[in-house]
Design a binder for these strands. Structure first.
Lengths: 200, 200
DNA sequence: CCAAATAACTGAGTGTGCTCATAATTGAGT
DNA sequence: ACTCAATTATGAGCACACTCAGTTATTTGG
């Protein structure tokens, strides 16, 4: 009976290692080719696991994308929150949060749209989806925090305002009408709407 | 050579008749069982056409749903616009438009969510999708029209405000968090947000 | 150290949306 | 009427996400 260097049994360690391999494989393939051009077989093969094993770690292919994309979204959110802290005007601060999120969901636009689609339409009881939801909540909280700085807006329910902003973001980032647009154009469209929201 | 009672050749008439059969079959099956529980084979069989023929009339199964659901949405919109005309308060008038739309997209919630999802994520070059988009535009125009009645709001860009309202509607109607809610609850959530939008 | 129990893995199989090569239908030209 | 190009219809077949019955690995109890 060994001193158990980590408190994890072999079983747990194997599971973790497999999850890591799957995550890495999915990230590389999805990033390079786009989620629609990659089959679950290919991910399984690259991760060196059986085709069925994949679905023990992510219930659907879309969940697999959440697993991968959550990390990128979280990074973008951190960057944005940091950037927002140095902005004085409310609108500028909010846009500082939003811009990295736009970019993160449009580098590979197909993946970004699928990711956002899954957040709204996917099964919220799945763990990776739950994590995505908590990121959305963090985003709204950060935006609400900025609104709370302003006296006028404070009187107008910052949480609900933030909720409206995320609705605006979602539609502008996903709408097929905006596929051909640049990040800057999408950013402008969102800024315009928020500007109207905050009361012209 | 007959006088050609209608200016349509046999070919055109056959096509129209087939489209009608397909539409009717899809409507009945989707309405009764929900789009996910019905296979394209079943629709084809009920419409008495080959399995491949279906896809000459609707490029995807989702397009088939648009074909069916557009009609219901259009009816709901007409009802709402009519009801709004007798309301005096802006918020009441907007809600008069929105409530029938909520209902129409939640009678069979699975179909409604799939419909809305397809509007945002589907291929806008498909004809049935284009029709759905024009319904969205009509909805926004109707809401913008109501906002235009109000002096304050008129100064705040009614079109953009209406766009924000449709974003709010979309998220509140589709979010998986709201699946268990009643129509009234969803309506209240939307009303609350619009209320904040219009400036508390 | 072994046996039983439990958890994790596997890949052949399945269901379904959609395609595509072939067949049938149509109508214009003669 | 007949021919022939063009249009439309067909259903067997394909690709691929996902399942599940059977297998293997790990842990636990004795």
């Amino acid at each position: 009976m060994q001193p158990a260097p980590q408190t994890l049994g072999r079983r747990e360690r194997n599971k973790q290692e497999k999850l890591d391999r799957i995550t890495a494989a999915a990230r590389e393939l999805f990033t390079q080719f786009g989620v629609d051009e990659v089959t679950t077989q290919q991910v399984a093969e690259k991760a060196d696991v059986g085709a069925g094993t994949l679905f023990l770690y992510a219930k659907t292919k879309a969940e697999l994308l959440l697993l991968v994309h959550n990390v990128k979204y979280a990074q973008a959110l951190d960057v944005g929150i940091e950037a927002a802290s140095t902005e004085v005007a409310v609108l500028d601060a909010v846009m500082a949060i939003i811009l990295p999120i736009i970019e993160c969901n449009r580098v590979q636009i197909e993946n970004g749209r699928t990711y956002l689609r899954e957040i709204v339409f996917g099964d919220p009881s799945e763990p990776h989806h739950a994590e995505a939801l908590s990121l959305t909540i963090r985003t709204e909280a950060a935006i609400a925090g900025i609104f709370s700085r302003d006296e006028q807006l404070l009187a107008r329910d910052p949480e609900k305002l933030a909720r409206i902003v995320t609705s605006i973001m979602f539609i502008s980032m996903t709408s097929s009408a905006n596929i051909g647009h640049t990040d800057a154009q999408v950013g402008d469209e969102i800024r315009d709407q928020i500007s109207v929201l905050l009361g012209a």
